[in-house]
Design a protein around this nucleic acid. Structure first.
Lengths: 218, 218
DNA sequence: TAGATTGTTAATCGATTAACAATC
DNA sequence: TAGATTGTTAATCGATTAACAATC
């Protein structure tokens, strides 16, 4: 049976990937866990532990080959294959996702955008025409997108998610500020901007309190 | 000295807040940690532990008053005060943020948007006119926004962040896919969409592997 | 061969869960 | 008063860090 990797590890992988990508661009050939740990501000031990969940990518006395490790982490993250993405909701957020070139570069191919608003239908975003929601079932059934990015108002999110899942979609990138209750074999990744902003707000207050405290101390 | 709350706890607070908000809307008056835990799919113990980091909000034999707890968590998150937000970058992402009504409802008041593109300047987004970046220094210095939302290309993110921080900004909501190295008293909250998408990609592959495995078993 | 650095085991630390006395 | 449920201490679990033998 396959080992289950903790979410803590998974969360760190994209960051390793980003750093290795930068090193690679700078044509750095090799790097030790110690050196990488200093740049990334984590422990060398953690890097080695994390990587060894997936295999021994390094070499004693040498370290890690940047190009090789970059490629291997890419494979672990599934970036070695194309992902066919459909966006539902062509509001600002949907359009922002469609226009974000970084995704295409990483193999996420945005092939369709859907919206209910008649005035949006036919408009072109990032080279893709906005389609009517009435075409959605047909599209999903026949084109089988790997990922659906859900950028609809939260009132409709659950319904749309249920629909596309019933038509065969297995992965949802959810931007609606609500929880999707879906069968457990459906992969869901949430981007909850409001929660992010609230954490920022919390930390602003915490930082202020801390400052006040240090002022009192003097 | 003030107790430092772990990030694990802080991450959960907005979710509690959201659930309590829903209960409140449904006019539920009281709730026990057990009942809430079942709805939220966490342990009752965790809820009580989390809340007791901030004080005793409940009552033995009764549970928690929904309205009161909602308000208190709001205060903890700093949602009882207005936040003056300025967005830098009026591309799709900046516009999406500006148009997102949920933020205003939570006291995040978006008062200004900046961009370099001449064709965007003067255009109105969510009731706010886009200003030229040349006005930025003046605006930040005089209007002192609490939060700067950074929605500029990653190449410029670090520079702009440094600038606004040097002009007095203490909190940055960063959407650029890069790390901002700033003085430690500056609060930074990152929204790294590419990393989110990579985690989704990882989980798609993991789910596929799992499925394949269970098929082989039979 | 000597030096460097990994892969991996062991120790520590922190977060989650369980248990229960306090109390409404 | 009896029942319910909190607040909090203790036990468990998991993740991080440290240490070091293996090995390039």
């Amino acid at each position: 049976m396959q080992k289950v990797i903790s979410t803590a590890v998974i969360k760190r992988l994209p960051r390793y990937y980003r750093y290795l990508g930068e090193l690679r661009k700078k044509e750095v050939v090799r790097i030790s866990s110690k050196e990488l740990s200093e740049r990334m501000n984590v422990t060398a031990s953690q890097i080695r532990q994390d990587l060894n969940n997936f295999g021994g990518f390094g070499q004693q006395g040498y370290g890690y080959n940047v190009e090789y490790l970059y490629t291997e982490i890419g494979k672990i993250l599934g970036l070695d294959q194309e992902h066919h993405v459909a966006i539902i909701g062509a509001g600002n957020l949907g359009q922002a996702i469609a226009n974000y070139g970084d995704f295409a570069r990483r193999g996420f191919d945005i092939r369709a955008i859907f919206d209910v608003k008649p005035e949006l239908i036919g408009k072109e975003i990032g080279g893709v025409k906005i389609r009517s929601m009435s075409e959605l079932k047909d599209y999903v059934t026949n084109q089988k997108p790997d990922i659906v990015a859900l950028a609809v108002p939260k009132e409709h999110a659950m319904q749309v998610a249920n629909d596309v899942v019933s038509w065969g979609v297995g992965a949802i990138w959810n931007f609606a500020p609500t929880e999707l209750h879906l069968p457990k074999d459906v992969v869901v990744e949430n981007v909850h901007l409001t929660e992010s902003l609230m954490r920022l707000s919390y930390n602003i207050r915490a930082a202020k309190d801390k400052q006040k405290e240090s002022e009192t101390e003097q």
